[in-house]
Each structure stands twice: as C-alpha cells, then as structure tokens.
Nucleic acid binder design. Structure first.
Length: 191
DNA sequence: CGTACGATCTGCT
DNA sequence: GCAGATCGTACGA
C-alpha cells in the first residue's frame, strides 16, 4: 500500500524524517521496478534552517517545488554530477523537505546492480544520496512528481523499527550553515 | 552575461 | 586524508 499524500502534511519535519526510516521507497522508471528500505534521512526545516535551500523564504525557480503541498519529490543536482532525492513535506507555502540518503535494496536487485555499475559486497546501495538516485534511476526529470503515482512512492512495512535502532547525528556537508550545523536532524538505521 | 560554488563520489596516497 | 570531476543555479554587474 502506498503511503497517502496526507501523511506528508505534518508540520514536524524532524519527526517525519525519523519516521521514514524503515519504510520502503520504490521507483518504476524505464519500466523497471526497483526499491529498498530507507536507512538514512535528513530533515531540512524551511525558512529558519540555514542549511535549507529555502532559508529566509528564498523562492526561486529551483526552490519553488518545496513550497508545494507535501508529498512531492524535489530532485536537484549537486556538484554538477549527483542528483539528490528529497521528499517535500508540510502544507502548501511551508518549504520543508527530507533528504533520503541511503536505502537497503529489496526489489529489482539486478537492475540496481546494472545501474550502479559494479556493486560492493555490502548491501547498502549508498553511503550518500548520489548513489541512491543512480541505483533507482532518479534524475532531474523526476523533480516535482506526486508521491502517490506509479513513478516514485513510499510504502509501509510490517516490521516495526525500534526507536533504539535509530541513531540521530549532525547533518553532513553543511559546514556553511553556522550553528544550524549542530542540529541533530540526521537519522540512521543501525544494522 | 559572467562567475562562484555546492545537502558528493571516486580513486589515489 | 585529499584533490579533482563537472554543471545547474543563484546572484551581482
């Protein structure tokens, strides 16, 4: 069962980011179904968060997606090479987002392997967001898509995640964000 | 119009 | 541990 759009409307991005841990992310791109369990996320808390693209209420062609009603994808390019996949949350007009940083592949293993090139022994398809999007076939074309359609979506799992198995840490690569760098907005599933 | 830079990855040391 | 790749976006002139 797909997670309904209403789920993404919560105004507590941080709790929402944590709740994504253990859920499944699927894509159906180029006719191939691929997916896995989300093991790492980061919350970006809108206009008061220096690390967010929408800090200070910045509205540009790129950040416009973040102001949409929760439950759409926000994909953008970083360092000219890597596509990053985010989930927009909260109500229309409030630019919250959750960056998905890692998954544990469960579906479409062969296709994931093919897209990633050679795959290491370990089962985490990513140490970082760039590899995850590549493995699932996500790129800039998939910006601003509704997450209840048949292209990108999330599903609940039967397995309950113990809160103790979720680690929270500082976010990565945002040294420029000043004191906001210290916020524990990153969540990792211990394996 | 031009320039600087980034929510990263890889490979080499 | 560190440099290099590589290009869309933002912003200033």
């Amino acid at each position: 069962m797909k997670i309904p759009l209403s789920y993404y409307l919560s105004d507590d991005v941080v709790s929402l980011a944590k709740s994504f841990i253990g859920k499944s992310l699927f894509t159906k791109i180029d006719g191939k179904l691929t997916g896995g369990i989300i093991t790492e996320t980061e919350a970006y808390a809108g206009i008061i968060d220096r690390a967010s693209h929408a800090f200070g209420g910045r509205r540009t062609k790129r950040t416009e997606v973040m102001y949409q009603s929760g439950g759409v994808s926000y994909v953008y390019l970083c360092y000219g090479i890597h596509s990053m996949f985010n989930i927009v949350t909260n109500k229309r007009g409030i630019p919250h987002a959750v960056l998905v940083r890692a998954i544990y592949p469960t579906t479409g293993w062969e296709e994931i392997q093919k897209r990633s090139g050679k795959l290491q022994r370990n089962y985490t398809v990513t140490n970082g967001p760039g590899k995850l999007t590549k493995a699932l076939g996500i790129d800039l074309k998939h910006n601003s898509l509704l997450l209840n359609e048949n292209i990108i979506w999330l599903e609940n799992n039967d397995v309950a995640i113990d809160n103790l198995d979720i680690l929270s840490t500082k976010r990565i690569g945002i040294e420029y964000a000043g004191e906001d760098e210290l916020l524990y907005y990153r969540f990792v599933l211990k394996i």
